[in-house]
């Protein structure tokens, strides 16, 4: 069952079609809650199109629907890449409304709705992988990258042969260790950014063109 369904998922050849046929890459921004996915998506969309994508928030699971911004062009050093950006809800293994009540003083009712929507968001995010040609996997450099969700996602994307670029975000913070991310996933390219301060974004574009273009 698992194997059979994988055969229907994007293969290397359909990925090549998307670049040499459509000439456009659909790039999914994935990662755990609060890693800075929306902040990064906003940074990119603002930079390329002068607009924002959606609200970022210190409260986890702010993004509970996948958001798409189509038809952007990124260029760097004489090369360019035409792309769609999809910002996705954070992927987590446990979501509890109590967290919103105790840490963010939310009312029970609102917190329960948020938890339910966040859980649905995880499903929607995972469902969207089928439509992605490449993935930016965003991680918070101050956190231990070696957790079940990250390892599972990376393993699955490798099996799907989806080009993957890891973004080690929040490098501006004390205790940030992009090196820990590089050591945890040495088989994948890692770009260091501060989406909040706009650091490393040019390097990110270069890497995207190099690995996805």
């Amino acid at each position: 069952m698992g194997l059979l369904s994988w055969l229907k998922k994007p293969t290397l050849s359909s990925w090549m079609d998307s670049f040499f046929g459509k000439q456009k890459a659909s790039i999914g921004i994935y990662g755990p809650p609060n890693a800075g996915k929306t902040t990064l998506a906003n940074r990119i969309v603002k930079d390329l199109a002068g607009e924002e994508m959606g609200p970022a928030s210190p409260i986890p699971h702010e993004t509970r629907r996948a958001m798409k911004r189509a038809d952007l062009t990124v260029q760097s050093n004489g090369a360019s890449l035409h792309l769609d950006i999809v910002d996705t809800p954070g992927i987590a293994t446990k979501i509890d409304f109590e967290e919103f009540v105790t840490d963010f003083e939310m009312k029970d009712e609102e917190a329960k709705d948020r938890a339910k929507e966040a859980t649905e968001g995880v499903i929607e995010a995972i469902n969207w992988i089928n439509d992605c040609d490449a993935v930016l996997l965003v991680m918070d450099s101050t956190k231990d990258p070696f957790n079940q969700a990250n390892v599972t996602i990376i393993g699955n994307m490798e099996a799907r042969k989806l080009p993957l670029l890891i973004v080690a975000n929040k490098t501006d913070q004390d205790g940030a260790s992009p090196q820990r991310i590089m050591d945890a996933f040495p088989q994948h390219p890692v770009v260091q950014t501060s989406a909040l301060e706009g650091e490393g974004i040019e390097e990110l574009y270069e890497s995207m063109i190099h690995h996805f273009g």
Binding site: V45, M67, A70, L72, Q75
Partner: peptide, 24 residues
């Protein structure tokens, strides 16, 4: 050095980010 690709039919109403799916 940043450019936006313009859709030939209509560039106008495609500019905002939209929910990618109708899932949920």
């Amino acid at each position: 050095n940043r450019f936006r690709y313009i859709l030939e039919e209509d560039g106008s109403d495609k500019e905002a980010a939209e929910p990618a799916g109708d899932g949920g």
